[in-house]
Nucleic acid binder design. Structure first.
Lengths: 125, 125
DNA sequence: CTCCGTGGTGACGTTGAGGTAACCGGGCAC
DNA sequence: GTGCCCGGTTACCTCAACGTCACCACGGAG
């Protein structure tokens, strides 16, 4: 077997890998590209709030890590698409998206309760 | 139905939620706490490379978002444990860990290929 | 030819996550 | 009492991520 990678070790390459994929921009881009290959501008419009620079940087990093591919299309425009490796990322990352969207109320409620308790503590010590 | 949360909208609360859970520290802590409740020092030792400050900050944020609970044990020591909400996070986050550890070689190879191609491009233009 | 849209790149500034290290209260050993 | 470990907290600093803005190459429309 291979040298027993573990993300809990600080210097293990899997730690850097985890940091790359456990990232909101990565998650959104992979989820979008799973539907269909997209052009730069399409991604830029779909991921609201991302700047061109950050989008470029993220796409380059994902390309370098072998998760996406920048392919020249017949129409002369480049499109970004998932590689086989990138496709294996879709399930876990879209699970994160689904979780975030379906548990918004739970999280918001928890925050209200936490903040209310914190206020009570400071007001009546 | 609720107001159609989507992480692709910049101001949607689900975006902040996604940013919280799509995070290496969150992933590691949730995976560890799924085994058993742990004390601060145990977490600090298990998550190699995390500082006490970052661990405190992350634990507080997760507690505020209702994902973990700081419970006083019979032995007088506080232990951190997953809430019901936090337990629903385990599957997606441990999937990320598993992905990162099992695809290290793929990623490392892709990086080598990418860097070699980039070198070739700059040396022979 | 000029003008505009697309898909970037590069130089800079700002912000926020994270690192460092000192300190502190409680429990317990001595 | 003193000393020490644990579980933090605090103040301060650093650095990488991110934002802003200007610019540029290329292609197509006119």
């Amino acid at each position: 077997m291979t040298p027993e990678w573990t993300v809990f070790s600080a210097e293990c390459p899997s730690r850097r890998s985890l940091a790359r994929i456990a990232n909101k921009w990565t998650a959104m881009i992979v989820v979008l590209l799973h539907e269909e290959p997209l052009r730069f501008g399409e991604l830029h419009r779909a991921v609201e709030g991302i700047t061109k620079k950050v989008l470029t940087d993220t796409l380059r990093a994902l390309e370098r890590d072998g998760m996406i591919d920048r392919a020249l299309h017949r129409d002369g425009h480049a499109r970004y698409e998932l590689t086989d490796l990138g496709r294996t990322l879709h399930a876990p990352l879209s699970a994160l998206q689904v979780w975030a969207e379906s548990h918004v109320e739970d999280v918001l409620d928890a925050q209200d309760r936490y903040d209310a308790a914190a206020d009570a503590r400071t007001l009546a010590p």
